[in-house]
Design a protein around this nucleic acid. Structure first.
Ligand code: ZN
Ligand code: ZN
Ligand code: ZN
Ligand code: ZN
Lengths: 140, 140
DNA sequence: TCAAATTATGTTATATTATAACACTACACT
DNA sequence: AGTGTAGTGTTATAATATAACATAATTTGA
């Protein structure tokens, strides 16, 4: 896989750098406004960089949020084999690395016996930090 | 679960009816233009109906397509427990009903032992029909 | 080595998807 | 009858994403 080792272009670096600095997923227009001073002026420049970074697996798109997050799994060299947990309360996103679940998804085939090229799985719940903030007694 | 049995409002019926008539997922603005003659005039009317129909599990949102599809699994009375297969070529979407996979997802908990309220899983591949149209010899 | 192909950039305009805000109506419950 | 909740209609606008076109940089390979 040598796409992965190809050096990034200027705009791709700028965009990736900003995404990696953020703990939470970021939105395209938030990226834009934050990198304007680096010479990126318009949405297409951001979206092109995002497309490429997704293609080489450096970042992933969080579909339910229209947001983008850096890959935390070193061997994600392709898009579309992604598992996330998403907190409904603070919207923090964690990429899940679970060999057993990977295998279950990889091996899944539908009724017609068709195997799939990729998948995206998003789990929703309340993260530990948010659970502590809202103890059971205040939940109804 | 008595939300499910509550009669739908006029706009909810119109929107659900249109979605159910379509084999493929439909987009919000396509719904709008197709139900204009039924007295739905503006986006908020469509989106409100969609939100409610999703909430009661009559339809689901296909996150990767920004589209909406009728539920094909009779006991989906909640949102966010959904599994789809999506053809990359014709974009047809099928809701998957697979007890084994349901169980694997239901039982999944992350490293912190946190269980999740819901999930959305989208598989990507090429459907049978599209595979037949493009036999291996023409693929490279 | 140099022409062709591919990849990336910059820019303007526009398309697509979704929500805010406000006034009003229908209906259920007590 | 009064109150709360859900639904409707409408205008305007926000947020997300792409089309289209001109140009520049880079890789490739004959
Ligand atoms: Zn990853
Ligand atoms: Zn949280
Ligand atoms: Zn369903
Ligand atoms: Zn297909």
């Amino acid at each position: 896989m040598d796409k992965k080792n190809k050096p990034l272009s200027k705009n791709q670096k700028i965009v990736l750098d900003f995404i990696q600095k953020n703990k939470k997923p970021v939105k395209a227009y938030s990226i834009l406004s934050n990198v304007k001073r680096k010479g990126i002026n318009a949405p297409p420049q951001v979206y092109r960089a995002l497309d490429k970074l997704i293609e080489i697996g450096k970042i992933h798109r969080v579909e339910s949020q229209n947001s983008f997050v850096a890959c935390k799994v070193s061997d994600c060299d392709t898009p579309h084999k992604t598992i996330f947990s998403i907190c409904n309360s603070c919207e923090i996103v964690s990429e899940i690395k679970d060999p057993k679940l990977f295998k279950q998804l990889k091996d899944f085939s539908d009724n017609d016996g068709i195997k799939f090229d990729g998948y995206n799985l998003e789990f929703f719940g309340t993260c530990k930090a948010c659970k502590n903030k809202q103890p059971e007694s205040t939940q109804h």
